[in-house]
């Protein structure tokens, strides 16, 4: 790394301000002013529109295996998703997924 101390702090400062502005943008400036009905309907899907797309590459091409698909990770991911869906509780999905993952790693270690 060849940046000067000042340059590193510049990066940190701009990223801090920029990230805050992104997070503050709509919540800060729109507040409770009415938004178009279509936009409101779309925004209700925000969590389910972002999270699956964010996680999919991490499941299919995990960095820990150098990007090679790994059956144990894929199965554990499906179990976490399925148990989360059936129980409607994040904590049970996590517990089942983590258990499946480490059981899978242990079994493949034995084989």
């Amino acid at each position: 790394m060849t940046y000067s101390t000042g340059e590193i702090w510049l990066i940190i400062g701009v990223l801090a301000v920029g990230t805050f502005m992104i997070r503050f943008s709509f919540l800060g400036l729109i507040g409770d002013r009415p938004m178009p009905p279509l936009v409101l309907r779309m925004l209700r899907y925000t969590p389910v529109a972002i999270l699956p797309g964010m996680v999919a590459p991490l499941v299919l091409w995990p960095a820990a295996t150098g990007g090679a698909p790994d059956l144990v990770r894929i199965i554990a991911a499906l179990i976490a998703l399925g148990v989360g869906y059936l129980t409607r509780k994040v904590i049970w999905g996590m517990a089942a997924g983590v258990t499946a993952f480490y059981t899978g790693l242990w079994l493949t270690g034995l084989l």
Partner: peptide
């Protein structure tokens, strides 16, 4: 310890109840 995979597992357990 493969803790890297806790992150996707957690996010996916959050996706389940959203469906």
């Amino acid at each position: 310890l493969a803790l890297d995979f806790i992150l996707p597992i957690t996010f996916l357990s959050m996706v389940g109840p959203m469906l």
